[in-house]
Amino acid sequence: MLEILQYEFMRNALAAGLLVSIACGVIGSLVVVNRIVFISGGIAHASYGGIGLAFFAGFAPGLGAGLAALVSALVMGLVSHSRKHRADTIIGVIWAVGMSVGIILMDLTPGYRVDLMSYLFGSILLVPTHALWSMAGLILVITALTIFFYKDFLVMSHDEEFARAMGVPVTSLYFLLLIMVAISVVMTIQVVGLILVIALLTIPSYIAEKYSSSLKQMMLTAVIISIVFTQTGIWLAYYMDLTTGATIVMVAAAGFLISSLIPGRAS
């Protein structure tokens, strides 16, 4: 069973799954407790506009995805802060427009038909070694920021009104969180693709929340659950010759079902 480790692309895939699990566990927990799942989905899909632009203008698609994710995160942050009652509609529009812009720019790119599927469903078997290093760097930054602002994120997530009264810069933290979501989303797109990002960002955290008595514990548990899902999914996909991203998500869904049968701490 270990013979697949002799292939570099398999080693890289498993390592990418591991790294992305850290981001998904830590940031995914904040996404779930702050109820910004929909915004995160919007960021993921809008980033496709950046991928299209990158192919059209001829620069790295990873960079395009990153820029589009950041811009859409900031716009959605502004909208959800200033126009709360219609925010979900506007986020839905940005979600769809970003995606459409990407597809049209791809159409307009002369003589170049990119494999759309690899962005929609991930291309974990094609992750180069240097990409692993930049992922590791970004995760280091995200984790450091989360630790540094842990108490602020904790009080903001639990009781925003009280956090404001305690002098916690809630608005700045909210935008920082959205930026970290954008970074995590772009990394996770490589593994499971932009359509399935939300599953990996939310399912492990949602399961972890049930069995955790603190946010810290929820993050750690979600990281571990996420690692189990990605590694199992990659192995299964290899042996059964299935699409990796979709297999990971099916493993996560199975985990979700099993967890619903195991009672949590507060029931």
């Binding site: 407790v33 108490k151 904790l154 009080v155 997530s157 639990h158 009781d159 009104e161 009280f162 009264a165 305690m166 002098g167 916690v168 929340e209 955790s212 008595s213 603190s214 946010l215 514990q217 929820m218 507060a266």
Partner: peptide, 28 residues
């Protein structure tokens, strides 16, 4: 300054225990 906001209705699933919640009052 101390503040007790208006209570939010609905179940609070947030993973935090009583002691940690009260400690956040010391944040300032």
């Amino acid at each position: 300054v101390g503040y007790v906001p208006q209570s939010q209705s609905g179940a609070d699933r947030f993973p935090i225990n009583v002691m940690d919640t009260v400690l956040l009052g010391r944040l300032g």
